[in-house]
Design a protein around this nucleic acid. Structure first.
Length: 419
RNA sequence: GCCCCCAUCGACUAGCGGCCUAGGUCACCACCCUUUCAAGGUGGCUACACGGGUUCGAAUCCCGUUGGGGGCACCA
């Protein structure tokens, strides 16, 4: 039997990172089993539909590198089929009319149970289940009816979804049984929480894929991180490629307890991926990112600056903070400047040849000896005067890139405002 | 209130009865390297929620307690 799964977002807003994590599990499972992965928008409730959220969803998935097979579908497209099946259920007395709506008969005794691929066996006492409305009085199918019908029609073999659907499952199983459909394998992945143990939301930090992208996380790092949230191939692996993920992913190894989203670890991991990029690939990624941000900085200049920040930043969004001094004026804090040092530095750098980091280094170190001062006390004012900050890329490289004229100008201006 | 699920370091997790005086990674602390910040290196800090069983032996199995989460709609 060919594996077929589906990713089923609601078009109620931007793609939530927790939802993406379960989509990733679906996708990894399908790709690892030579199966198909469908994308179905659960738009049964049109009132909650947010403008262009479908476009957002597609865009976010594409960016992450999660693809789907066939055309995107919409739950509403199956409404006619839902109505036809409901009529059949009524005819078979498995459902009945109630105030214009159609309700399905739930079993009155025993249990509704299934073997969850992640959580193991789960049983619900049948007396907990009320006869559920499947068709509203206006004829629109309800989610807990439309979803299993679609799964059946689409030939879904594995329903991999969030924990919050566990209590929907018995209802959907009853629907499927009434329909005479074969049951899919259910797998419920635990939720993703914020640091306080509550469902991950805006107040914890970024939650939509778009926000992570805008902050300068790169897709492979985010995918790696997400996959490890609630799943682990073993006790050691932390950095794992997309291909290896596909190869090693199994539902059995998805944990059953909820996971907390650790932003600090994501930062670290993103840095690992960023540093691992080749020089050109890094510059390309940076450039693409900045362009998306609407940056108008010179492309060649960005490429030049890329290598000196690669070891320094963990998110592409930090680029501007680090090398903004190459693209615009700086406003150094006078209290951190030192007139003597800056004047002397300007004098020495005025005639240095050639203008490169190595030579500048030699010159500045010689300056320290001449002033009989520790490198620390000499380099700080220079760094602040030149870059406007006490934190920057390597000083010599920064000076080289800035160029002689601008460097001298900033050194001298710094000396004049030193306090 | 009723039903379901969950429970190992601050975080993600490894562990599926003896290999555990509980391992890895992030975070944190210290030191080293060092022009700042990072990166890198070395070392350190912390965990089996609690109480009963079962067993020669339990983080691992069973029961209970506590704590957390989810659900009980003509929402998805």
């Amino acid at each position: 039997m060919t594996v077929r799964v589906r990713m089923a977002p609601s078009p109620t807003g931007f793609l939530h990172i927790g939802g993406v994590r379960t989509f990733l599990f679906n996708w990894l499972y399908a790709r690892g089993h030579g199966g198909e992965c469908l994308l179905r928008i659960e738009n049964t409730d049109t009132s909650r539909e947010a403008a262009d959220s479908v476009g957002q969803i597609e865009e976010s998935l594409r960016w992450l590198g999660i693809d789907w097979d066939g055309e995107m579908r919409f739950q509403l497209d199956g409404a006619d089929r839902c109505r036809a099946e409901a009529a059949r259920l009524v005819a078979e007395d498995k459902a009945y009319e109630d105030d214009g709506a159609i309700r399905i008969r739930m079993p009155k005794e025993g249990v509704v149970a299934w073997d969850d691929a992640i959580k193991g066996r789960i049983e619900f006492p049948a007396d907990q289940l009320e006869d559920m409305v499947i068709l509203r009085s206006d004829g629109r199918p309800v989610y807990n009816y439309a979803s299993p019908v679609d799964d059946w029609v689409d030939g879904i073999t594995h329903v991999i979804r969030g924990d919050d659907h566990v209590s929907n499952t018995p209802k959907q199983i009853v629907v499927l049984q009434a329909l005479g459909a074969e049951l899919p394998v259910y797998a419920h992945a635990p939720n993703v929480f914020g640091e306080d143990g509550k469902k991950l939301s805006k107040r914890h930090g970024a939650v939509s894929v778009g926000e992570f992208r805008e902050a300068g996380y790169i897709a492979p790092a985010l995918m790696n991180f997400l996959a490890l949230l609630g799943w682990a191939p073993d006790g050691e692996t932390t950095i794992i490629s997309r291909d290896e993920l596909i190869e090693r992913f199994t539902l059995e190894r998805v944990g059953s307890s909820p996971a907390t989203f650790d932003y600090a670890k994501l930062d670290w991991m993103n840095g690992v991926y960023l540093r691992d990029l080749g020089r050109d690939a890094y510059a390309d990624a940076l450039l693409t990112f900045l362009l998306e941000q609407g940056s108008e900085w010179d492309e060649a200049r960005i490429r030049e600056a890329a290598p000196i920040v690669q070891e320094k930043i963990g998110r592409l969004g930090e680029f501007a903070d680090f090398v903004g001094f190459l693209f615009g004026d700086v406003a150094p804090d006078p209290a951190l400047l030192d007139e003597t040092v800056l004047t002397e530095a300007a004098t020495r750098l005025e005639t240095v040849e050639p203008w490169d980091a190595a030579t500048i280094e030699v010159e500045l170190k010689a300056l320290c000896e001449r002033l009989g001062a520790k490198p620390k006390t000499v380099f700080l004012p220079i760094r602040v005067a030149v870059t406007g900050s006490r934190i920057s890329p390597g000083l010599y490289e920064s000076i080289e890139l800035l160029g002689r004229d601008a460097t001298l100008a900033r050194l001298r201006h710094g000396a004049s405002i030193a306090g």
